[in-house]
Amino acid sequence: MAFSNKHLRWLALILRIALGGIFIYAAWAKLRDPWELYALAINSYEVLPLWAVELVARTLPWLELVVGVGLVSGIGLRIWSAATSLLLVVFFGLMVRAFAKGMQINCGCFGGTGDIISKWTLLRDGSMLAGSLLLTWMAFPRRSQPASHGNPVPDPNPAPDRIPV
């Protein structure tokens, strides 16, 4: 089934509002509590020394807030969608690692009082990552295919450089 630009525009709008909203909520959930609770969740992954845990716990929620607002606003979407994808790749990778190691820990996705890492949380974050990667792909310009012989055949319904999201 071929999607028209209109469908893609709607899809992109839904993705950026949904992802932006989730990031804003995640940031708020972390910022409303003392940073130590989020730090505890980060520390339970056992990947960072305590000083780095504190640094991440104090700064990451603000970064999530900025990214979330950026996504919802739609201004500079390439930057925000790429940043979202990058963050979600890191989050998802850490969660997969913890799940594979059988660690029964809070994912820390929404602060200190979140869900224990499970197939459900992996599915949730995996879906977000897929959506984010799709949004990033739509936000960046794509080169049109050059014709193999002679002059390019004009396309009666040309695709734009990128989906205007």
Partner: peptide, 21 residues
């Protein structure tokens, strides 16, 4: 009121910071 699951010697600095706060 804050819940702090799994307190141990490794994360005690965080618990201490929370109580001090």
């Amino acid at each position: 009121r804050y819940s702090f699951p799994g307190p141990d010697q490794g994360n005690y600095p965080l618990l201490r910071s929370l109580i001090d706060g």
